[in-house]
Structures are given as C-alpha cells and as structure tokens.
Computed example of a mutant assay.
Amino acid sequence: MQWSLKLGTVAGTEVRVHITFALLLIWIWVMHYRIGGPTAAFEGVAFIVSVFLCVVLHEFGHIAAARQFGIKTPDITLLPIGGLARLERNPTRPLEEFVIAIAGPLVNVVIAGLIIMVVGGALGWEQLLAPQDPRVDFLTRLAGVNIFLVLFNMIPAFPMDGGRVLRAILAWRLPWARATTLAARIGQSMAVAMGVFGVFFSPLLILVAIFVYFSAETEAQGSELQAISAGTSISDVMMTDFATLASEARVGEAVELLLATSQSEFPVLNEAGRFEGLMTRESIVRAMKEKGAGAPVITVMRRDIPTVDEQSPVDVGLRLMQEAGAPALPVVDRSQRVVGCINYETIGELLMLRNADESFSLVDVFAACLDQVRTYRSVIATPSAMRSLG
C-alpha cells in the first residue's frame, strides 16, 4: 500500500504501518497531555500501541488460518481505522472462507479471556464497556477493546469478518457470486440502519456506515467481475498491435508516439524484447517539463510495473494493476518476451464483445465493475485480496 513504511517481516509476512498512523499517535498524545500531562500522554500512546498489537495478532489469526489452505499473505498494513491483511489469492471454498474469517475474532476472544483471568475479580462490565475512560485500569481497558473488536468484526457486513462468515454460510447452498451479492445487500441494509442511528446518536457511525455501504458494493461487483471473466485468459483480451519504446530512446520519441497513436502507455523494451519499464502519459509530460526531450526514457520511466503471463486469468491482470497502481501491464510469454499489453479500457471493450451473445445485464454489470475498479484502484487494493478491518 502506498504511503506505508515497513516495520519488519514475521514468518514471511511484511508488517507495514501507514504514515497516517503517526497522526493518530500525535493526536492521542496531545489529547492525553491536555488531560493529565506527560504521564497521561505516554500512557495514552502506550495504550494505542497495545491495541494495535492486538490488531496485528488478529490479522495473524487470519494469516495462520489461510496458510492451512495454502494461501500466502504477502503483507499486513496498520491504518488508524484498523489492520488490513492482503491474501495472495481468494479462498475457493466456503469452508476456507469461514475458517479464515473467524480466526481473527477468535484471537481477540483469547486475548480478552487471558486478560480477564489475570485481572480476575477486579473486573466489572461497566469497566469493560468503557475502554475510552483513562481512569479505568490499563489491562481492563485492553480487555474491553478486544471484546469490542470481536463484536464489531462480527457485524454481518463487508469488509468486516462477519460479512465473510455470512457469505461462507450462504455459499454452502448458493453459487459464490449469488452468496456474495446477498451478503452485500444484507450488509448495506445494516449500513443504512447504522447511518440512521448515527444521525441521532453519533456522527462517527455515519462515516462507518458510508464506508461499510460502499465496501459491500465493491465486494459484490468484484465477485460479479470474477464470475464473468472466468475462463477468459489475458491472451484473449490483450492488445497485440501496440507501440513500444527502445531502452535507448529519448523522451522526445515518447512524445511523438503519444501524439501519433491512441496509446497512453508505452512499454520500454531492451534488445531482447524484455520489459524494462513503462512510460505513461503522466511520466512523459513530467519528463518534458523537468528534463526536456533529450532525456533518456530509462531515467524517467516507471520501473515498479509488474508483468503478467499471457495464460493468466483476466482477474489476475486486474488485481496486479490495482496493487501496482498501474494504468497498464505488459503481457509476457514463457520466455519473458513482451507479446501484448492490457489496460482497463481494452479489457472492458474486448470482454464486452466476447460476451455480446450473453444477456445485456451481464455486460452492464461488467462495465459497472470496471468503472468501480478504476474509481477505487488507487484507494483500495483488490477487495478480494484484502482481509477485513482488525
């Protein structure tokens, strides 16, 4: 995820923290300092850090369960609103989805139970339900937060774990896409109710409701997209007639191609026809302003663009574009030579033509899916590759 810093690697999974997390710690410090001075400020920051350690353990609960089914987790990212674990691929069976989703909240149940055992008789429900009160004992507040995480995450709405548990239960009897749609609609209904409740009691609930509503919509559309693109490979939709740039080319040549063709992205290839980088419309314009037409393209091209195999499914290409924040991807063959190029527009157009003999509603759904993907690709990683908030 962009704007995140790597803290370290645990069991093959990168633990990252978003830069906005620092803003949360600063805000907590200031608020507690105003209440009780430096001591209260340090305790407030320590409490937030402890909460997010519980969130990390929650996410590693998902990770441990996913690995039982052979699903790797490249990284988890801590955000001010929780944690996100990115799975390498989707669960393929309802049982997998159920176990992976429920594993995170179970970790919080264990943490809360251990704290209650340690604190013992000093605990009361009033204290557990007031984790925001700095006058309550540190461990008691931490137990209360873990109880809250369980209850919040088990709300049957995406992107919370409860939404995925609900989908898994429905998928035992219904097709996956239908189960996702039904679970999303239930979650959206709860979001609307949450928003109405928030109007009268808490503005924060309105923000949560909006987030839940659109997350459910994105999940449903992503499932429809996956269903429609099933059986369609990258080679079926890639562009094979496209312009490229040699690695020794200058920015001026990229400008000429930009003006002479309808392309906005140009793969940069070496002498062997292998991918070196990508020149986009934005990088061309920026290079002209900053370095001029004579600058080598290899000094200004994007090098963080992945390649995709021509035999990969279409949804794999879409996921890679989203994760990299890339407008296009080069397509390679078994020898890693570039044989094609894909972007959001060509995938949408060619798949719509491929499915022209199917119902019009499916084409409409696919078009809507691509619109949603383009809208959210810079904000959210592929919905199906992101686990719930911790």
Rank of each mutant, 00 (worst) to 15 (best):
G8C: 04
T13Q: 03
R16T: 10
F21K: 00
A22H: 15
L23S: 09
R34A: 15
G36N: 07
A41L: 12
A41I: 14
V45E: 11
I48N: 08
G61P: 05
A64V: 06
A65C: 10
R67Y: 01
R89M: 09
R89A: 03
R93M: 09
R93L: 10
P94F: 06
E96V: 02
E97K: 02
A103P: 00
G104Q: 09
P105M: 11
L106K: 12
L114M: 02
V118P: 00
V119N: 05
G120N: 11
G121R: 12
A130R: 04
P131Q: 06
D133G: 14
L142F: 03
G162F: 01
V165K: 00
L166D: 08
I169Y: 06
L170M: 03
R178S: 12
T181P: 01
T181A: 14
R185Y: 03
M190T: 07
G195Q: 00
G195F: 13
G198N: 02
F200R: 06
I206H: 12
A216P: 03
T218E: 12
G222A: 14
G222R: 01
I234Q: 11
S235H: 15
M239N: 08
D241S: 13
A246E: 14
A249L: 08
R250F: 09
R250M: 05
L257H: 15
L258P: 04
Q263V: 09
V268Y: 07
R286V: 02
E290C: 04
G294S: 11
V297R: 01
P313S: 15
D315I: 07
G317T: 08
L320I: 02
A324T: 04
V332Q: 06
V332Y: 05
S335H: 07
V338L: 10
E345L: 13
G348W: 02
G348P: 08
A356F: 12
S359E: 12
F360G: 09
L362N: 10
V363Y: 06
F366E: 13
A367S: 13
Q372H: 12
T382M: 02
